[in-house]
Design a protein around this nucleic acid. Sequence first.
DNA 1: ATTAATTTTCAATAATTTCTGAAAATATAA
DNA 2: TTATATTTTCAGAAATTATTGAAAATTAAT
Lengths: 168, 168
Amino acid sequence: MKLTEAKAQFISSWGAFGTHWGINRTMAQIHALLLISPDPITQDDIMEQLNISRGNVNMNTRDLIDWGLVDRVLIPGERKEFFIAEKDIWKVATQIIKERKKRELDPMLKLLGQLEKIEGDKKDKDTKQFIDTVAGIRKFGGQADKMLDVMIKADENWFLGNVLKIFK
Amino acid sequence: MKLTEAKAQFISSWGAFGTHWGINRTMAQIHALLLISPDPITQDDIMEQLNISRGNVNMNTRDLIDWGLVDRVLIPGERKEFFIAEKDIWKVATQIIKERKKRELDPMLKLLGQLEKIEGDKKDKDTKQFIDTVAGIRKFGGQADKMLDVMIKADENWFLGNVLKIFK
DNA sequence: ATTAATTTTCAATAATTTCTGAAAATATAA
DNA sequence: TTATATTTTCAGAAATTATTGAAAATTAAT
């Protein structure tokens, strides 16, 4: 396989992969393109390579920046802005975990905590099942939360070392 | 908060949560409803509680069954089919991990393996960055894959016990 | 201050995904 | 077998989400 073909396939698959994770196709494709670009590239480069409009590139690069996965860089003498992606996959993963935890897991755990404090007779079948379900999810989510917190703080070698020790 | 209100909020939030994970809102809502229902319920029950059409219930319950999260049960003397969800959250999580691994992670790792074997001069900047990126993702994904395999086989107490031991 | 380059915004449009509902298929009872 | 209940399918409709492109805003150079 040639580089050009491989690149195209990587970008396309990464985009499809993203849609299974609640990330929009284009954002994932831009991210993929940036991951395999050794040097910073411009809005126009992205537009051209992915055949998408300026507005689209602008919105999605902003989102990638908000997620902490991409940075704007200024190149001396150049008028345009350039974009570059964090290339260390461990850092990428950590950053995604951190953001999703903040945006989704933490609020969900908060809500479950409230729902658990429902009024009502615990002898009632429906009430009991509701409380048990909510409590079960919350307990599980709480463990995941703790685990992810440590993971985020840990550095790569420490973590992988420990994972290998446990999961072998 | 009353049970009725809490139920509605749980179902609605679970649905919204699902959309961030590539799961459609209705499937997640049906799953939520089944999780808090102590006894098996019918298509008609689901239609009524969630205000959705028969076809919609049918398609999404089938998907939930394909995911291994819901079972059809036959109740003696009853003509209709009933549905019931696995209530043990550990089992639910394990099942989801198992399916997503099979559907997404495994195929992605296979593809990355192919892309890594690209022809071309490794001294070339673009080629080098491509190979490094793909190899990096593959290595990380491979670790995750191994870890999840062990998790899937492990039972809850073993797993949580170990997590607590390591991540404290 | 004026001009030119570049980025950002957002209303309109397009694309995609989800949902409905009625017809067809299937299963059960009489 | 015939009638009745129940489930499944799927084309079209509705809802949601993503994209465009041109105008407005911003930035930098002259």
